[in-house]
Amino acid sequence: MGEDSRVSTLVVRAQNRFCALPVDRVVETFRPTLVEPVAGVPDLVLGVSVIRGETVPVVSLAALLGLPAAGVRARFVTVRTDGAVVALAVDEAVGVLRFDPDELSKVPALLKEATKHVHAIAVMDGKLLSFLECSHLLDKELVERLLAEGWT
């Protein structure tokens, strides 16, 4: 296996949990913008925000990982899902790291029940690193409803 087989990820932090996002899904990182809350949506959806002229749903990474609602949410990271671009609210964008697929482990059954979006785990400097599946962060209907009703 050469260097091409390594996976590039953007490592972010939510509270004390580190999470790796596939770089090919990441659009950019930036400071948090104004978030408008939306009624009748799951708790992990903080609302919608206008980013570079487009309405984007904002999702809490901590809530996505099943962590309690806390943290500074110092960065937004926009990722491309299969349906639309979604902004993840994280506490810190650590940087782009590359991982060998052999370093990855399968998600234990217990952790898998907690969140369905983690597809692999690894250890980074003695800390647990969760690899996030970004293709289906939100249901398609929910995304459409957010984009349709977000500004009404």
Binding site: S8, E28, V96
Partner: peptide, 11 residues
């Protein structure tokens, strides 16, 4: 932020 975005773009 810019450097991280640049790294993302480079990747």
């Amino acid at each position: 932020i810019l450097s991280i975005n640049a790294t993302i773009e480079a990747a």
